[in-house]
Amino acid sequence: MSAIAALFVIPGLFFFAVGTLGILRFPDFYTRLQAAGKCDSFASVLVLLGIAIYNLGDFTLASLLVSIKIMLIAVFVFIASPTATHAITESALIVGVEPWMRKERKKQ
């Protein structure tokens, strides 16, 4: 069970690391938000799935119940995180945050 759980948790950690790298290295608001929103929602779902499988190791009714609760958290994150990203992006668009462009294209 713990091997299967590691199969989910390790890619999740990899996506978290990539998302953090994106937040640090991308040039402007929108691209950073994309890195944060996409990687974090996918990675947290993967990590939670791994934890749920690991918790199912001794197969009893109580651990099954806890695993189902963890999966409900994953579903909730999967709905809420993209919506929050969408709301932040939209309000940035309305306020008028300029997206990053290459210098040659900006002159035209």
């Binding site: 909730f76 709905i79 809420a80 919506t83 969408h86 709301a87 939209e90 668009l93 309305i94 008028g96 300029e98 997206p99």
Partner: peptide
Amino acid sequence: MKRLQERAQNRPTGESPIIRMAVRVMIPF
């Protein structure tokens, strides 16, 4: 960019339908 911004500002229904739908799903839970 300008056109997108104008479209977001002048949308007739107010708040975005994506946010409304997600909130509608989440509130009972």
